[in-house]
Design a protein around this nucleic acid. Sequence first.
DNA 1: TGCTAATTAGGAGTGAATCCTATATATTGC
DNA 2: GCAATATATAGGATTCACTCCTAATTAGCA
Lengths: 141, 141
Amino acid sequence: MDIKRLEEVFRQHNLKVTPQRIAIYQELINSSEHPSAINIYERIKAQYPNISLDTVNRTLLTFAEIGLVRIVEGRGDPKRFDPNLHPHHHFRCIKCGKIIDFYNEEYDALDVPSTLKDRFIITSKRVNLEGICDECQTRSD
Amino acid sequence: MDIKRLEEVFRQHNLKVTPQRIAIYQELINSSEHPSAINIYERIKAQYPNISLDTVNRTLLTFAEIGLVRIVEGRGDPKRFDPNLHPHHHFRCIKCGKIIDFYNEEYDALDVPSTLKDRFIITSKRVNLEGICDECQTRSD
DNA sequence: TGCTAATTAGGAGTGAATCCTATATATTGC
DNA sequence: GCAATATATAGGATTCACTCCTAATTAGCA
């Protein structure tokens, strides 16, 4: 998504186009490790020395609300954000916390059981894998 | 799982059998809403007025380490615990946070893509659904 | 350019988890 | 049963990740 398109999305949601919002989004798409608000905040301080953590956090949550990013599913701890809106799934290493995107059409095509579909509005369906990544297997043990 | 069996599990992992550990586990299996450490702590204070939150939290994490419970996947916020070790999946309401277990053989039988199986050790595979539960659909809007 | 509502910075406050340490207790060997 | 000892617990302090508050700033419209 280029900046012009991003600004359009902001306007569509009645959000003002601020340099902070643009910088935060760009920082997010330039990183592939599903960073937390604090990760983004640390990096963006090079450009904006007195941006506040609250701004970064609030902005990321706003992005999540308008569907521009997703909050990654995990087990508590800091929220991590994912700008990849294509259908995809995650593998998470239980040792180092690394999260790896992968694509799988069988998973995408899974049907939701009708007992659930009838009772709930389903907005998201993800397969989450966990285990030990290649690096953590060789490292120590 | 009865208490005798639970005590065995503790001993197998070189954990001492303490009344706190037993009470925490029982409180967990008596609740169906995937409680957090603080939920358990509040309830267990009736029996053990001066149990500490740290004990509850540490104990639940120990249980997770030995595979006696699972930490529920979510989006940050307090960790929630699940004593159900049978293969199952979760629906989470994005409004009220309620988590509902469901069983589905198609989901259980999903294969892990070989590109991942070759590279990583997979220890867990879950389908997570999100959406709006029946109660939250009727309530307000 | 000036107005107004939205946004931001920065500090204070909160909630959950973790750390620290002295005390208590479960287990093992006698 | 009893003592020794390694483990576990209580309770308070601390850390971490937000979240709230408010005054100052800024984007976008007229």
